[in-house]
Design a protein around this nucleic acid. Structure first.
Length: 716
RNA sequence: GGGCGAUUAGCUCAGUUGGUAGAGCAACUCUUUUACACAGAGAAGGUCACAGGUUCGAGUCCUGUAUCGCCCACCA
């Protein structure tokens, strides 16, 4: 027996070497896997953002996926796990810009597009290297030879091709529509990048001709020349749709037009409102329905335009009270409600208050009909049907309802951003002419300065990583992928977009199964965040307790879709378990040696029963993995190894092994060796390092444990 | 406002088609006996949030209530 077993298990001494052995073996690449493998199993790694380091959520994701991948590999499938990173356009750009601003006091415009982008890329590269190291430390068996980046050349081809095809089909269009403008980031953002913040502010009531109207934003009201009420509101029955009346307003008299629209809520305030189509989504829709004029009041820096008269040039915050004061002087202020609580839309990255604006942007039309298999359909319908038809199963299933709910409320997706870091929109301009093309159409053509929403490129991830638009062997073998595993928090951002992209471009689903894991929280159930100071760094935990322990602590007790409360105590518990397995191996190896037992010896029936029982545990674990209950699978193995195999079977075996009957002892010792082999295999996906390390000291092992066959029961 | 979850031992959670409640941590007692004290043996701990209902029987199914959490919408 190897003398290493005389000391407690030391993860630090083995983990790095083991990972190197795996990597050197080439088995992470399915092309090198031993044996005949026909059926394939593939996963793409949700690419971590190159904005810094990995957190425990990433660690949980890596643990789950590695379990699925190692299990599939051991079951003899052609198994591919593609790694990669995401350039995360706006997140990375704003992070770098903040850093430069803080350290050097300059912004991106001071540096210029080219220099600034270089700086972002340097940061992204450093971040990438950190991430890759962390992925290795977790033991993730990804195929590094296929590593991808959402902003590399290969992915750029895919992005351009996707854009061009969708544009050709009329599903990408340039339009003047109301969008979410971030005045601080100076870019448009999508609905999903908005965070609502509850705020208490003042709510003002003004006299508007014969009406009283309410608003929290007097600074937008200059151009309000439409007064809207519900068609069935009896109080205003005397006013007909289209009636005009002269009203005294902020900067003098204006002509107001009566509009009857069901969007006006009779219950709210006085039931009458004036509208500002340029700076409100709802108002924009009302204006569209009735073909009303729209006027811009606030510019993209948050300053009032000349329409505001004497207030022109003022910032929103300065203007508001001054306007109210003027209205008070004119006797048009009815009252002020001081405790108006409402939700304010802010930008996720910059925290600036969003100013809706009408702007020319690029959109993906989700409701537009197009022909597919000689039938009319829409992108929305494709997204819905992918799940309805069961071509995609979402686990846990209640997320399917949430998914449908989101799809039904989906509006056109604004994909252009006024930021620099990202894929340039493949549109070219020359005077009034516009062309869509990856390359410049020639002399005098200028490319659109906007970049694409980061989710446009990550939406292609399952197939852009496999070589699309080229018809590669990887595409044929590994797409659609088997499982997409990710946190439920990006179901809409990402999962839905992949279904859309794959559905349109390949006429297929991007994956057969979506497995959503929960969020990792601290022991009190709070989100981990810098401000709370409760962040647990996975690398620290790996240093202290080993990757195996960290992995198990993130798996056991985490039912699909449920948040996991993690404490260091739990991790320590699983480190103890790694040591337990270590000592089990020591005992079994020692006993085997003492009895002169061979692991492939023929066994007495009652000894064979022990091996069979171990196979039974592995089989039970397999059943749980098949139904994506990794928590139960890991627990099954844990319980069996510790409380059945160690506590009962080994204890019962002691007298036999030391007994007078040498043949009996030999058979039992051989059985324990065989059972241990089975248990190492069964535990390998969950705790790959310690099991592989022990495996290397087992008699009669030929190859790495990671490519051994999953133990099957002999009697069914 | 609309939707979705959760509520089981001190803590974190299992509990599969209804059949007298389980695990891991923590705490308690004993044990350093050659696999392991990163351990073993043992004991303790629960009106399964509450109220009804279905049933021979409910933690499990139905209805309602309460508390907590999340998602969507954003009412000028």
């Amino acid at each position: 027996m190897d003398s290493k077993f005389l000391k407690p298990y030391d993860h630090k001494a083995v983990e790095t070497d083991i990972y190197k052995k795996w990597e050197d073996s080439g088995y992470f690449n399915p092309d090198n896997l031993p044996g005949e493998r026909t059926e394939s199993f593939s996963i793409v790694l949700p690419p971590p953002n190159v904005t810094g380091t990995l957190h425990l959520g990433h660690a949980a994701m890596l643990a789950v996926e590695d379990i699925l991948v190692r299990f599939a590999r051991m079951r003899g499938l052609k198994t591919l796990w593609v790694p990669g990173t995401d350039h995360a356009a706006i997140a990375t750009q704003s992070k770098v810009e903040k850093e430069i601003q803080k350290k050097e006091g300059v912004n991106r415009h001071d540096l210029g597009r080219e220099t600034f982008l270089k700086r972002v890329e340097e940061f992204a590269q450093a971040s990438h290297d950190t991430i890759v190291n962390q992925v290795r430390r977790m033991g993730a068996s990804v195929d590094w030879s296929r590593e991808a980046y959402t902003l590399d050349d290969s992915r750029r081809r895919a992005v351009n091709e996707a854009f061009i095809r969708m544009h050709k089909a009329g599903l990408i269009y340039q339009g003047e529509r109301i969008v979410n403008w971030d005045p601080k980031g100076q870019t448009v953002i999508s609905d999903d990048e908005i965070v609502y913040r509850e705020e208490k502010s003042k709510f003002y009531y003004f006299t508007y001709g014969p009406f009283t109207i309410g608003t929290a934003r007097p600074e937008t009201k200059f151009g309000d020349k439409y007064v809207v009420m519900h068609p069935d509101d009896a109080r205003y029955a005397q006013y007909k749709h289209g009636d005009t009346l002269e009203v005294e307003w902020i900067n003098g008299p204006i002509t107001a037009t009566v509009i009857k629209d069901a969007a006006a809520n009779p219950e709210f305030g006085t039931g009458v409102m004036t509208i500002t189509p340029w700076h409100s989504g709802i108002d924009f829709e009302i204006a569209e329905r009735h073909k009303l004029n729209k006027e811009q009041v606030i510019d993209k820096y948050g300053k009032l335009l000349p329409i505001a008269g004497e207030f022109a040039g003022l910032k929103i915050a300065e203007a508001r009270e001054k306007i109210v004061e003027k209205m008070r002087e004119k006797g048009l202020l009815v009252k002020v409600d001081e405790d108006y609580v409402h939700n304010v839309a802010t930008a996720e990255r910059t925290e600036a208050v969003i100013e809706p604006q009408i702007m020319k942007q690029w959109f993906v039309a989700v409701n537009k009909e197009f022909e597919r298999d000689s039938k009319q359909t829409t992108l929305k319908e494709i997204m819905r049907k992918a799940v309805e038809s069961k071509n995609i199963t979402i686990t846990p299933d209640h997320f399917e309802k949430i998914y449908y709910h989101w799809i039904d409320n989906l509006r056109d997706w604004c994909i252009s951003r006024q930021i620099w870091f990202g894929h340039r929109v493949p549109a070219w301009y020359k005077g009034e002419e516009i062309r869509i093309s990856a390359e410049s159409p020639g002399e005098g053509w200028e490319q659109d300065s906007d970049t694409l929403d980061t989710w446009f490129s990550s939406g292609l991830w399952t197939f852009s990583t496999l070589g699309w638009p080229e018809e590669t062997a990887d595409m044929r073998t590994y797409h659609p992928t088997s499982v997409l595993e990710t946190g439920y928090d990006i179901l809409f951002f990402w999962v839905a977009r992949m279904i859309l992209m794959s559905g349109f471009l390949l006429d297929t689903v991007p994956f057969q199964r979506v497995y959503l894991h929960g969020l990792v929280r601290d022991e009190k159930g709070r989100k981990m965040s810098k401000s709370l100071g409760n962040i647990i760094d996975p690398l620290d935990m790996i240093e202290k307790y080993g990757a195996d322990a960290v992995r198990l602590s993130l798996i056991v007790g985490a039912a699909p879709g449920n948040d996991l409360k993690l404490s260091e105590d739990r991790i320590r518990g699983y480190k103890n378990f790694a040591n337990k397995i270590w000592n089990i191996a020591r005992f079994v190896l020692e006993s085997g040696q003492a009895a002169g037992a061979d692991s492939d010896a023929t066994l007495a029936p009652e000894d064979e029963a022990i091996v069979e029982e171990a196979r039974g545990a592995a089989q039970e674990a397999a059943t749980h993995i098949d139904s994506f209950r990794l928590d139960l699978a890991a627990d099954t193995m844990y319980q069996f190894i510790w409380h059945r195999f160690a506590d009962a079977i080994l204890e019962e075996s002691k007298p036999l092994l030391k007994g007078p009957d040498a043949a009996r002892a030999k058979s039992r010792a051989a059985a324990l060796l065989q059972a241990l082999e089975v248990l190492l295999k069964g535990m390998h996906p969950f705790m790959p390092f310690v099991t592989e390390e022990i495996w290397s000291s087992m008699p009669n092992t030929k190859d790495l444990l990671m490519v051994e066959a999953w133990p099957a029961k002999e009697t069914v």
